[in-house]
Amino acid sequence: MATARRESWGSTEPIALKEYLRLKKWAKYYDRRSAGALVVLARLLAGRQIDPRTPIHWALGDLEFQDYGLETIREKSRDEAGTWSSERFAREGMHSVSPLTQFKVLYNMPLCLAAMELDLVGENSVTHGLDEGMLVSAVATAWEGDMILGATRCRADGGIDCVAALARRDEIPLDRRGDILEILGEWT
């Protein structure tokens, strides 16, 4: 029977990421979206035997709060008149943020990082948009057992909402419309 876990963190509330990392140094790859996804999933799966081939499908909303150094790039890419300078961008702006930033803007990182921590190697997808669209990939699976469905919302104030669920294909309500966190959250 389908089950789910829901977690939320306030804008400045720490997320206990390192409790769930085998290698603490990998924390550098995580932003709050990825951290929230791993924590809610690890808590959902705690004490359960999960087949490594269990499918995992995740949905993500827009990046609402983290600017990933945009303001710094902007300051270092303006000319004296305060307008865009491709010359200054090439000289200073593009070098002003950490290469690790790239790991935080790619949409597939929450899923891939969680898969690495939890040794998940099965069917998968990452969907942009917190609507029912992510269910399309999940319900197409050939897998007969439980699969993992999850979603992450970043709120404008910096808060994070995450839901992770375990459900079989025949339990997925493909005819439902609306917020995927609410749809999955009904299994909590």
Partner: peptide
Amino acid sequence: MRSVNVSA
């Protein structure tokens, strides 16, 4: 149905 897959 419609969806946008962003699996890189």
